[in-house]
């Protein structure tokens, strides 16, 4: 396999290959699947891309929870299309990871066994219809901010997958905001539902950008490799600056009493994030970690006979031909 080839090459010709690799990064030339790359770059990419893919797949669950209860037929269609897009995004990303020499079932296995991580936000429950709006508005909003820079990342297949994904994401954010608009313009219980959703989703969304730069040891290397283009704190600030006025427009209150515009900085100041909660959820003790994983394991295990049958049939057809 390709990984072993790299190891062999790395021993002898590393410096020359490394020089050419670095030069490509400097010139902004994308790295492609069959190009030489440092093993650490490959490993980091596999981890990053597959975590992203897992997040899309697990991310189908909290919103999928509301497909059967969407309060209008149009909303049902939009939500179906949105969750379907997430399956598509997961698929594009797994494909990108597969170009690095790992099979999708290996990545799936890592997710199902609990070894692989995915975005912590999907370990929170969706309790009301407004949560569908809040997720689209906040979570997809945060995702876009995270993902747009990645369309220019150094690894070609990843950058191309992200380009496709970002095109589709903007629809996700808009439909979520539109749910919130309708609720906020509706009856008192509808508006209360919207505020309650914002109260519960705000901080987990702020945490989506990951730990503060001071506690993010791998960032510098990833930025050198151009598979991370802005720091966690930069992106977080961008998200808050962009979202605070949107909340104002909806007439909703962001649950942070320290949130205010700082004229001198040209940014919003905001309160302290509860990083203990973040690490607790990442480690597996969020409200829904076990349920989410269980749902994925069930789908995979209950589908095993179907996948096996399709292969068996394909083999029979080949034999007959």
């Amino acid at each position: 396999m390709y990984t072993q080839m790299v190891d062999v090459e790395a021993a002898g010709a590393a410096s020359d290959e490394q020089r050419r690799f670095d030069e490509k990064l400097d010139r902004g030339v994308t790295i492609e699947p069959k190009d030489w790359m440092p093993e650490a770059y490959r490993k980091t990419l596999v981890r990053q891309i597959s975590q992203h893919a897992h997040s899309e797949i697990v991310g189908m669950l909290p919103e999928g929870n509301w497909i059967t209860r969407a309060p209008s037929l149009e909303r049902k269609l939009i939500l179906l299309a949105k969750v379907q897009d997430e399956a598509g995004h997961g698929l594009y990303l797994y494909s990108a990871a597969e170009t690095l020499g790992v099979a999708r079932d290996e990545l799936t296995e890592a997710l199902l066994s609990g070894r692989a991580k995915y975005s912590s936000i999907f370990n929170y429950p969706t309790l009301t219809w407004a949560d569908v709006g809040a997720i689209g508005w906040l979570v997809d909003g945060a995702a876009i901010i995270n993902q747009i820079p990645l369309t220019r990342c150094s690894y070609g297949p990843y950058a191309r997958a992200m380009t496709r994904i970002c095109k589709e994401e903007s629809f996700h954010q808009r439909q979520g905001f539109d749910v919130m608009v309708k609720l906020c313009a509706g009856t008192a219980p509808q508006k209360a539902m919207a505020q309650d959703a914002l109260d519960r989703w705000w901080w987990p969304a702020v945490m989506m950008f990951g730990p503060p730069d001071s506690a993010s040891p791998n960032s510098e290397q990833s930025m050198h490799w151009k598979i991370k283009l802005f720091s966690n704190d930069e992106l977080r600030q961008r998200f808050i600056d962009q979202t605070a006025p949107q909340a104002d427009a909806l007439g909703l209150v962001i649950p942070d009493c320290e949130l205010r515009w700082n004229e001198a900085r040209g940014h919003y100041d905001f309160g302290a994030v509860d990083w203990d909660e973040f690490y607790r959820v990442v480690r597996g003790d969020g409200p829904c970690n076990r349920d989410r994983l269980r749902a994925r394991v069930d789908a995979w295990e209950e589908g095993a006979w179907v996948r096996e049958a399709a292969l068996a049939h394909a083999e029979k057809r080949t034999r007959r031909a």
Binding site: M60, G64, I67, A87, L91, A295, W300
Partner: peptide
């Protein structure tokens, strides 16, 4: 079924 199909392609 969305999110619970036997394989990702089938979810879509």
């Amino acid at each position: 079924w969305t999110g619970h199909a036997p394989i990702l392609e089938e979810d879509l």
